[in-house]
Design a binder for these strands. Structure first.
Lengths: 326, 326
DNA sequence: GCAATGGATGGTAGCGCTACCATATCGAGG
DNA sequence: CCTCGATATGGTAGCGCTACCATCCATTGC
């Protein structure tokens, strides 16, 4: 930077301003500095800048996994919105493990990110304490917390699951089984399972533990769970899979086995994934505002960085996508 | 840090060592410092550390998109390997736009990442120059460059595509159409298309432009392209889709339309995506070492940071996954 | 015509850490 | 007993930038 300043015939501080706050520098000075930067091949040292300004212009985000495209859409929304405002996005994955989540967040705090976006509302108490102590703005995504850490944006996983069960009931199904993800430290999955039970209760149906399967989010597991349900409890007439990965796996299993859907068993998912819409029969699912969750999360964080108060909770709702599978 | 030092009764530099190079500090001192850190709630300031040590222990990576799980696997491999060695991964997406790739890399260089992992071997000349000038270790992934920027790890997209055409020919298909991605600044897609033509030429078949479709990687586009091919050139007996997203879209279109596969038209993809294996008929595809590409990229970069010379190029090959769709 | 105003630029100090060298301490060996 | 080397700890300087205040000049209003 000293080189650039010498080359342009100005003080280093003016170069700094030309790079970071161009509006505060006269047009001709700016031109001279830009040429000098070009000539010297200067690359701004963001690390030094962050240290001096006490702001990194980076936001850290934790998602369970990258391989599930539902979170990819949210990250895309986050990233685009942040980039437009001159911020960068750091991404970490927790692999659905709260301890890994904590470690990723600790690394973010060491990097002094200006804000953090977490997936879900269940976090280790130690992590909650660390976040509070650090004073870093935080937004929880993909569910509505009863007690937000700071801010949140998402939808009610409980209500979405209940609505899907209502839909299945309205289609005349009564013996509705459930395939969902593991519930340990996963508020979204827990809420969906509770929504399933609530939907049954509402319709005067009783929830049977024999109708419930919990398994990691992989196509094969959806297929395996359905096959198991059909053999152990053949009386079922519908399956609600609380994730499209599992639902698609189940549906493909039916197609492979020649089981009519919804003739033998009706199927419904959640998440509104693109692949479900391509299948025959089209998978009944639930659309969530995946991209918008990210975009809103970005806005909320930037607002908080700009001085807005914590406590914002945004509900983006959901939309039923009825398909021929139910 | 000064607080911690006072609390533990040592000099700040000893605290620094306790955090960064614990082996150089006596056991009892370490214990005292650890307790002091606990008590004061000290969080290491990685930004200041990076400035002083001239090393950020961060690697930047650019992928075309996050929503395609094939790159997610590579990122997972990268991330795990890096974490195990105390490095962190920054992720940026180019959206298949070389200008965006350049901007993402520029941001990485400003952050002074210790290494960069790029997807593909086609980059804007300005970017190549910037990377050379910066001296940052770089590894190109997912293809074998004729002229590597620095190091590379991947496989021959050309040979993989040609092998798939050979497979289709061996199954008796002669009028083989092609559905691939847009070729602009995308070396993988270009190589696959060349592989397709080479495979045809080898078998004494001539490549017809009317048999070729180029379209962005979305399920719907695979379906649309196949439908278009079947109506405009109904004589085709096989389609090679140079990406599983397009191939799955095409296969689902056949299932929906009641077209027998491979009876009416045989189908083959590339990428070995999990969904293709779940379909009926199972999609013929090609497995690439997606995770290993990332893991190797990490090793190579860390080697370069440790002083290894540039020029390493690793070919991880590919494996044909014959399915019932061809 | 002169103070008041505002825009452009510069000097200085310091962000929090670590590299480098210096120093202190201890036990082993001659 | 003294030297030597190994291990543990400390002092100092500086990484490259920006916040803060000061300065300077041109313009404006009365």
């Amino acid at each position: 930077m000293a080189d650039v300043a010498r080359e342009a015939g100005v003080a280093p501080i003016t170069v700094s301003r030309a790079v970071s706050h161009p509006s505060q520098v006269a047009a001709h000075t700016l031109t001279a500095i830009r040429r000098a930067i070009e000539q010297t091949g200067y690359v701004r040292h963001a690390v030094a800048g962050s240290l001096a300004s006490k702001a990194t212009r980076c936001i850290g985000s934790v998602v369970p996994v990258l391989s599930n495209s539902i979170f990819a859409d949210t990250l895309q929304g986050l990233s685009e919105e942040l980039e437009a405002r001159g911020y960068r996005l750091l991404i970490g994955s927790s692999q659905y493990d709260p301890l890994r989540e904590q470690r990723v967040v600790e690394a973010f705090l060491e990097q002094r990110v200006d804000g953090i976006a977490l997936t879900g509302t269940t976090h280790l108490p130690a992590l909650r304490a660390q976040l509070k102590r650090s004073g870093t703005p935080v937004v929880e995504m993909w569910n509505l917390p009863t007690r937000p850490l700071d801010c949140a944006v998402g939808f009610s996983n409980f209500a979405a699951a209940r609505a899907m069960v209502r839909h299945l009931v309205s289609r005349g199904h009564r013996r509705i089984a459930y395939i969902g993800g593991p519930t340990y430290m996963n508020d979204r999955t827990q809420a969906r399972e509770r929504g399933y039970r609530a939907g049954l209760a509402e319709a005067g149906l009783k929830a049977r533990e024999a109708f419930v399967r919990r398994t990691p989010f992989e196509f094969e597991n959806g297929a395996r769970a359905l096959s198991d349900l059909l053999s152990k409890t053949p009386s079922i007439d519908a399956v609600f899979a609380a994730s499209d990965v599992l639902a698609v796996g189940a549906l493909l299993y039916c197609l492979k086995s020649g089981l009519p859907v919804p003739g033998r068993v009706a199927l419904a998912g959640l998440d509104g994934s693109p692949i479900g819409a391509q299948l025959t029969p089209e998978l009944t699912s639930m659309r969530f505002a995946r991209r918008e969750i990210g975009a809103h999360a970005a806005s909320i964080l930037l607002g908080r960085i700009g001085g807005a108060l914590p406590g914002t909770v945004v509900d983006l709702g959901f939309e039923l996508l009825p398909g021929a599978s139910s």
